[in-house]
Computed example of a mutant assay.
Amino acid sequence: MTQTRIHNLSISLDGFATGEGQALDAPMGHAGMRLAGWMFATRFGAPILERSGGTAGVDDAFAQQNEPGIGAEIMGAGKFGPPGWQDDPDWKGWWGANPPFHTPTFVLTHRPRPSIGMEGGTTFHFLDATAVEALDAASAAAEGRDIRIGGGATVVRQFLAAGLVDHMHLVQVPIVLGRGVRVWDGLEGLEADYDIEAVSAPSGVTHLTFDRKTA
């Protein structure tokens, strides 16, 4: 059965998944690399920064679950590019000619543009759509495989609020950001809908998995 999944979503102790001041030279705003540092240290994450090696263990085991079974991705405008990317007709995302998604990828934006085919099987489609409409489009493209909600925090919150997320892997990082974009606002009582497990890692992060309860 097709599921809607979130993986490797890092948040601070005070609930921020993105720092303030996102820009071309600061994709995560003032948070810098601190939220995702645990992942980039793993075997899964090191190649993203064109590094070799990386750690095995708990963090890598969770990070690796990001890929299997995914047939399409949905992301927000803030994950695709810095503020103002819609004004640059040549902007094709942060990831170069061969983005790491390798599937149809739907970017939610109020200013759609023609689809962009990239190397490695990624095609970016730009939609001005609700969460439900975007999920319908992604499901049609996924050909029976799962849909990944890739972020950022605002898009994740929209899908959680709409009750559209079946599985979420969230990573609580022991830092306090104080400002940025929070995940939990408006989601009071969310925990009642999920079975939740927590695993602490030697790196200092805590992996939280949320699986929707079945009737």
Rank of each mutant, 00 (worst) to 15 (best):
G96V: 05
G120R: 05
P47C: 05
L9C: 13
D193N: 10
H7T: 10
I11F: 00
T2V: 11
M168F: 10
G78C: 04
I70R: 09
A46S: 06
A138P: 04
A215I: 03
P174V: 10
G37N: 13
E73G: 09
L24H: 14
A56L: 11
P174S: 04
G163C: 07
G204Q: 01
P114A: 05
G54F: 04
T4Q: 11
G96S: 06
G29M: 14
S12T: 00
F80T: 08
H30P: 02
G84A: 11
A72G: 04
D211W: 14
G19A: 06
G152F: 06
M39G: 02
I147Y: 04
D88M: 09
G178E: 09
R43T: 01
A31V: 07
P100W: 07
R51A: 04
W38T: 00
S200F: 14
M75G: 01
L127K: 12
G19Q: 03
V107D: 06
D211R: 15
A141W: 08
G117L: 09
I11R: 04
R111W: 12
W38F: 01
E20M: 13
M168I: 03
R34K: 15
V171N: 01
L9D: 11
G57C: 02
F159V: 00
L108Q: 05
A31F: 03
A31K: 15
H110P: 09
A23I: 13
S52L: 07
G69I: 02
D146R: 01
L177Q: 09
H167T: 09
W184T: 10
I6G: 14
A138T: 05
A17P: 10
A141N: 10
G71M: 05
G78F: 07
G186T: 10
M1D: 06
T122E: 07
T122R: 01
T55Y: 14
E133S: 06
A215E: 02
T42I: 02
G120K: 07
H7R: 15
A161W: 12
G78K: 09
A26V: 00
E188L: 05
F106C: 03
M39I: 10
S200C: 13
A131M: 08
G204E: 01
H7W: 13
I74D: 00
T154H: 12
Q22A: 15
A36H: 12
D185T: 11
Q64N: 11
S203Y: 07
G152Y: 03
Q22D: 09
D25Y: 12
E20I: 14
G19K: 00
V205T: 01
L9E: 12
P89E: 11
G152Q: 01
G57H: 11
L135G: 01
E50D: 14
V107A: 04
D14S: 06
L190I: 11
D211E: 12
G186I: 05
D25L: 15
G117R: 15
G204Y: 02
W184Y: 15
K92C: 08
V171I: 14
F210K: 01
V199E: 01
E143V: 07
E20T: 15
G117P: 10
F16D: 03
G178T: 13
